[in-house]
Amino acid sequence: MQQFPCPFCGLRDEREFHFSGEAGNIRPDTTQPVSDADWRDYLYTHENPKGVSREIWVHTTCQEYFMMERDTVTMAVIGTQQMRRDTA
């Protein structure tokens, strides 16, 4: 059982969290033309890094999304950061 630090609730068991994708994947502006390749990259392409990874996670019990940096080999959590613009 791993533990992740939710920026709002503190350390909680991994069961309470859900992986929501890699950080920095910005949705293209679909009111403008978007190429097949750009849409594919947004929807499906991943870095899937071995080692340090910046990811978006959601703490399902408080429902807040946050950024977590962790190591996909050692499973060490490097840090988490909230994404609220007003408080960040």
Binding site: R27, V58, T60, Q63, Y65, M83, R84, D86
Partner: peptide, 15 residues
């Protein structure tokens, strides 16, 4: 609910 929460926080001002 999870789907809505995802978009709310990804794209909108949660306040």
């Amino acid at each position: 609910m999870a789907h809505l929460e995802h978009w709310r926080q990804d794209r909108f001002d949660p306040m």
